[in-house]
Design a protein around this nucleic acid. Structure first.
Lengths: 338, 338
DNA sequence: ATGAAAGCGCTAACAA
DNA sequence: TTGTTAGCGCTTTCAT
């Protein structure tokens, strides 16, 4: 591949001038600009950003860590981040932690190896074991979705407790009294807050709230939920705390032959297009993912730009999309779902 | 951050020795190894892979281009690629083309800027406009999922025509005669092959096959499908050629009040967990994504390793998971779905 | 087995 | 305004 020297030689200028033309840093005479540009075009020259970063000490790559890029929740988050990054001239190095804290730390170390300008991390638990590594490297980091226990970093998340309280209110208002919450993993603060929110409104209204931890994997969640529904008392409402749990719930409910919403109401945290397309359409808590991505990106850009203000802690509002899966059981036989 | 010189100074050795210890290239005396290692630990030294690549001319980053990382199909593909990459000590620079050929080319150019060891691309159409760029750069490229018209590169895809023929056979065998195919975009060879496959088996059996192009976006697909189902003759089978189309179909069918499978059978290309969890479970063509990722990665590693054999063209077999959404209409009133 | 020195491609001082 | 030179952090000769 041609280097900046090849271009300089062909254009009959110095490498500094080529650099200045390409980066528009210093003003260059119009005829030299033209000569450089045609040399670039003729050679198909593409600058080496690695070398550029090395010398200029300005990095244009940002590392992103998510628990699982195959999960559409994180896929959508990453897509929105990429959009923001592209606008600002950054590229994204994306890694998955597989919901494993040890792997998360290892992946963070790998990312630091590329000298990113910053990091955006959706931690796999509240501990965020790799935090020390990042702090030692002095690389700005913004946490998204999940909140590390001691947020010494900027954090962008949602108002879990408030929206879960609304779910509790909704379930009670539609006549449900025995609420089962399927939480993936209570080591995640989000999930504890969501449970607390439901309790806030459901218990004072006389409903019972039971919580089971079903794990982060689909197969395991389905199995635990099936077991619980087979052997325990049957609830009249089920609230799943993430999209994997919602799929697990649908499978488990079909397996034990419980009808939604006749036998029990189903509400899921995390929204997806298919959830409103199926019958019955599923009631969901919609998280503002694009907004979360933009906010996280904005904070990171601010930090990269030298902002040293105390950590920002942003909580975005969710929206409860109440659909047929949590309609009152008694009215349902007659109602149309669409 | 400490550099290799900081480590060398602390360990009392030369930078060459530090490099040799860290990369295990030349043999180093045990005591020096120990001193280097403790210096590394003490300083929290993390090597700069950009500088390393610059000097050694060995890149450990691979660029990945997908139409949309938020689409679980590509999310899963990328997750599988990341897994393979990590095992081989590579990192992934992932970009989305947004199903836009111009953006695809721009993103490819951006990737080349990082001097990747190779590229894995799921093109957004058969033209793959950026191919010239990649060839000029001399960077090995493997295409996955979609096949460029003139495959001068290694390609890993699925046997679309064969599995679509099986879908046609299945629909005919279960009593369907008026098949509607909802193709996203016929500029994608995959979709043309899938249509041809259905025709291969359905038309000789006396069924009619109609094809409509619904576009790659959900809202548009839903609208076009609704319009077609409202104003055209009602088919008794619908085959959607990707996961977005399947969601669009569910919405459209609910909107026009057609019941699956009583009024028509529904079969979707692309599988997802939720498709087997909903009622009725959806019949789907399952693509071997993990296998596709492993094969693409394997080809890329071979090319990076110097393999100059003629382009490989791999077609993997899909599996039709026939579920209740394409059960024979007449038997259905009595059948259990699960 | 180890170190000194050169140089990967680029940009930032500094000189002219 | 332009060119010359040094050097970012690393690896690789080449010498010892």
């Amino acid at each position: 591949m041609p280097s900046i020297r090849t271009v300089a030689a062909l254009a009959g200028v110095s490498t500094a001038t080529v650099s200045n033309v390409l980066n528009a840093r210093r003003s260059v005479a119009p005829d030299l600009v033209a000569r450089v540009q045609s040399a670039v075009a003729e050679l198909g020259y593409i600058a080496d950003l690695g070398a550029s970063r090395l010398r200029s000490r300005r990095s244009t790559v940002v590392g992103v860590v998510v628990p699982d890029i195959a999960n559409p929740f994180f896929g959508t988050l990453v897509a929105a981040l990429e959009d923001a990054a592209r606008r600002d001239g950054y590229d994204l190095l994306v890694v998955s932690s597989g919901e494993d804290p040890a792997l998360e730390t290892a992946r963070l170390r790998t990312l630091l190896t590329w000298r990113p300008a910053g990091l955006i991390v959706a931690p796999c638990d509240d501990r965020l074991a790799g935090r020390a590594l990042v702090q030692a490297a002095g690389v700005p980091m913004v946490c998204a979705d999940r909140v590390p226990a001691d947020p010494a970093f900027d954090v962008v998340t949602v108002d879990n407790r408030t929206i879960a309280a609304e779910v509790g209110r909704h379930l009670v208002a539609t006549g449900r009294r025995r609420i089962l919450i399927a939480a993936a993993n209570l080591a995640i603060g989000n999930n504890r807050d969501r449970c607390a929110g439901v309790r806030d409104t459901a218990e004072p209204a006389g409903a019972t709230v039971e919580i089971i931890e079903v794990g982060v994997r689909l197969a395991e969640s389905r199995a635990r939920l099936t077991r619980r529904l087979t052997f325990g008392p049957v609830p009249d409402a089920l609230f799943t705390l993430n999209n994997v749990g919602t799929v697990a719930a649908l499978s488990a409910l079909a397996e034990v032959r419980l009808a939604v919403p006749e036998d029990l109401a189903l509400v899921g945290f995390d929204d997806a297009e298919w959830m409103r397309a199926v019958s019955p359409p599923l009631s969901t808590v919609h998280q503002p993912l694009e907004q979360m991505a933009r906010a996280a990106w904005g904070r990171l850009m601010a930090r990269i730009g030298g902002d040293t203000s105390p950590p920002h802690h942003l909580r975005l509002a969710c929206r409860l999309d109440s659909r047929a899966s949590s309609a009152p059981a008694r009215r349902l036989a007659l109602a149309h779902w669409h």
